[in-house]
Design a protein around this nucleic acid. Structure first.
Lengths: 207, 207
DNA sequence: CTCCACATGTAAAGAGTTACATGATTTC
DNA sequence: GAAATCATGTAACTCTTTACATGTGGAG
């Protein structure tokens, strides 16, 4: 549901082909809303059918073609409506915390592996988001640069401020997850500390 | 994918009918992994077909029946395998931060409404999770009580510890989201402070 | 006899994942 | 002429949502 608006957000900066869009996507909005190219192409066709964007077939070499899309007035209105419509929050569905709640059934080694993987996962995300944050602060992100080029000077501060703020939130969340998982490693240590009861009782389950 | 294991986790404590399971679900695992009853019943049938659980039809009054499920050995093995298998993390897909990154296109009022809704949403989750945390600490949650009743004394500490720890993580995340959104309200204030340029330029988009 | 809790689903549609599939163009 | 990049999809499947659908049993 949000993919449509993520794509509109990019196309609003200027016309792009599906291919270029997809490349830009993974380098910008894709850090917040992942989508593979196999989802982007059909979605563009769908958005065109709905009248939010229009594609123009362009020749490329002798036989090749590429379809360059631009946002229509209806698309602009849809984007404006989206931005002012309250979000519908999805119900909780958190595989990591679900599993964490039942780690007493794992061996200490498996529990540690779980937390280490959690740390690794969120450190990778953290690195992505921190990198993005740096590129936003330095005004290096190509889409942001293009965006600013078509934005009146007095609105540029806000444009940067909200992008930066969004990524700051993600960075903080990632740090929180890492801290939590590190505490989890400590918990495993303290629970498997003195006696060998944990390892003993869970090896049964793996027999 | 996780629903199966959330259901197994509950059924492992003891046999339950679909109805009872669904009730218990929303009061325990449901706080981490939401599922409506319309998803639970078919999933139970599916799990039975896969051999992870077995249902026994019980009479209820003259005509009524209810199907009581228990975990099979294969189900126990599947659960044990799940707990020791590394999680596959889903790609980022965060509608709130996506929207936040484009709030320069909203009016100050809409931006404030966005952050207030975010705070409200996470305060509601926070209340749920803090309540659960209290019930876990006080050993009041009915499923936890049943779980402990069939758990050897030396394993009970761990059982409580991991549930508590999982909910602590959720509580911290919720607090983080609230703090972030509160800072967002401050950001909107500072950006719409002195001049009226923001309100002026965004009213165009809404015409 | 009425309502609430018990009890169990189906059907259709949307969103996302994964794997497969194809070909053209430019650059070295 | 080979490889990288440009360029665009389809098909099958799983998961989830939403809405609809139906009936029994017990308590007051």
């Amino acid at each position: 549901m949000s993919l449509k608006f993520a794509l509109l957000a990019l196309l609003r900066v200027g016309p792009l082909s599906g291919y270029d869009l997809q490349k830009q996507f993974s380098l910008s909005v894709g850090h917040v809303w992942h989508a593979p190219d196999s989802q982007i192409y059909p979605e563009l066709r769908k958005m065109e059918a709905e009248g939010f964007i229009e594609g123009e077939e362009q020749a490329r070499g002798q036989r090749g073609t590429r379809r360059v899309y631009h946002v229509t007035d209806a698309g602009e209105r849809a984007f404006a409506a989206w931005i002012r419509t309250p979000l519908e929050y999805a119900r909780v569905r958190d595989p990591a915390h679900l599993k964490a709640a039942y780690l007493e059934n794992a061996t200490p080694a498996a529990a540690r592996a779980f937390f280490r993987a959690h740390i690794e996962q969120w450190e990778a995300e953290l690195a992505q988001w921190e990198g993005e944050l740096r590129r936003i602060a330095a005004v290096e992100n190509p889409m942001l640069v293009r965006r600013l080029a078509v934005t009146p000077a007095e609105d540029q501060e806000r444009t940067i401020a909200f992008k930066r703020f969004a990524y700051e939130g993600l960075v903080e969340r990632a740090r929180g997850e890492i801290v939590w998982a590190q505490r989890g490693l400590g918990l495993v240590d303290s629970l498997s500390g003195t006696d060998g009861s944990w390892a003993a009782s869970t090896t049964v389950a793996e027999a």
